[in-house]
Amino acid sequence: MDLQLKNRVALVTGGSQGIGKAVAMKFAEEGATVVIAARGQALLDEVAAQIRAAGGKVTAIAADVSKDEECTRLVQEVLKAHGRLDILINNAGTSATGEFESVTDDKWQADFDLKLFAAIRLTRLAIPEMKKNNWGRIINVTNIGAKQPKEKSMPTTVTRAAGLAMTKALSKEFAPNNILVNSVCIGLIRAGQHERKAEKAGIPVEQMYETMGKTIPLGRVGRAEEVANVVTFLASEGGSYVTGSSVNLDGGLSAVM
């Protein structure tokens, strides 16, 4: 299936590892020009080298998207390098959780800045460029806790829930401009944070994944590449009638749609 992503320019935040890296590699495989952004240039350069080695087109830009001025600089550099911005994947952020009484104002603010305000600011900068071509795709990576928050899950579940509300509102506002806005809510996906947790606990990571998988109807933890497949579809012409939707990528774990 030709996803018709050739000559599209896609910006992927959190693009140096995990889901962001997998999404960037999949976009490049489909012929899109990819811009990956994260805080660390060294890791970005490693990913960029892998993409180029596979024949893909990529630009790596170090940026801290929790800061307003860095969001502005990032989009300016994308436009300077490629002249357009067609696809925005708001993927920055890790899972920050704790007991409610232990979460300080600073921790709340940091989570909002990284997960919600980064998406707000980058979207605000991207939409005028998408309007020029009457075509755009914005995909917000959230998690299933946004729909079904557990105890001791803040601030992440709150900032992610706000991201879902923003997704729905934007999808309605910019549908006349053919700018489609969707979200993917991830469940348990293989990631560096799990590997670090296993190392700290002194257990093999595969053993930990096996234990985690027992809680999932499909019986296993998901892979970043599986998330990338869905994100790429939503960004393509194949998903041209999908907007304002939230897809659970959780192996059936969530109890809600």
Rank of each mutant, 00 (worst) to 15 (best):
Asn91Glu: 05
Val75Asp: 06
Lys80Ala: 13
Ser95Thr: 08
Gly93Phe: 08
Arg73Val: 11
Val78Tyr: 04
Thr94Tyr: 15
Asp86Cys: 09
Thr97Gly: 10
Lys107Val: 15
Asn91Leu: 01
Thr104Met: 03
Glu101Leu: 08
Ala92Pro: 09
Gln76Thr: 09
Asn90Val: 00
Arg84Leu: 03
Gly83Cys: 08
Thr104Tyr: 04
Ser102Leu: 11
Cys71Phe: 14
His82Lys: 14
Ala81Trp: 01
Thr72Asn: 04
Thr97Leu: 13
Gln76Tyr: 08
Ala96Ser: 12
Lys107Gly: 13
Val75Tyr: 01
Thr94Gly: 15
Val75Ser: 14
Leu85Tyr: 05
Glu101Ser: 02
Gly93Lys: 09
Glu99Trp: 06
Lys107Gln: 15
Asn91His: 09
Ala96Arg: 11
Glu77Val: 03
Ile87Arg: 04
Arg84Thr: 04
Leu88Ser: 06
Cys71Lys: 03
Arg84Phe: 02
Lys107Leu: 15
Leu74Met: 06
Ala96Ile: 13
Arg73Ser: 10
Asp106Ser: 11
Ile89Gln: 05
Thr94Glu: 07
Leu88His: 07
Gly93Trp: 10
Gly98Met: 11
Ala96Trp: 13
Glu101Ala: 05
Ile89Arg: 04
Lys80Arg: 09
Gly98Lys: 08
Thr97Glu: 13
Val103Asn: 06
Glu101Cys: 10
Ser102Ile: 00
Leu79Ile: 10
His82Phe: 11
Ala81Ser: 09
Gly93Cys: 03
Thr104Arg: 06
Glu101Lys: 05
Thr104Gly: 03
Glu101Pro: 03
Thr72Phe: 00
Glu77Ala: 04
Ala81Phe: 02
Leu85His: 11
Cys71Ala: 12
Gln76Glu: 15
Val75Ala: 04
Gln76Trp: 14
Gln76Asp: 14
Val75Gln: 01
Phe100Leu: 15
Ala96Leu: 11
Leu88Val: 12
Asp86His: 02
Asp106Cys: 00
Leu79Thr: 03
Glu77Asp: 13
Asp105Leu: 06
Phe100Glu: 12
Thr72Met: 01
Glu101Val: 03
Gly98Trp: 10
Arg73His: 05
Lys107Glu: 15
Ala92Leu: 03
Val103Pro: 11
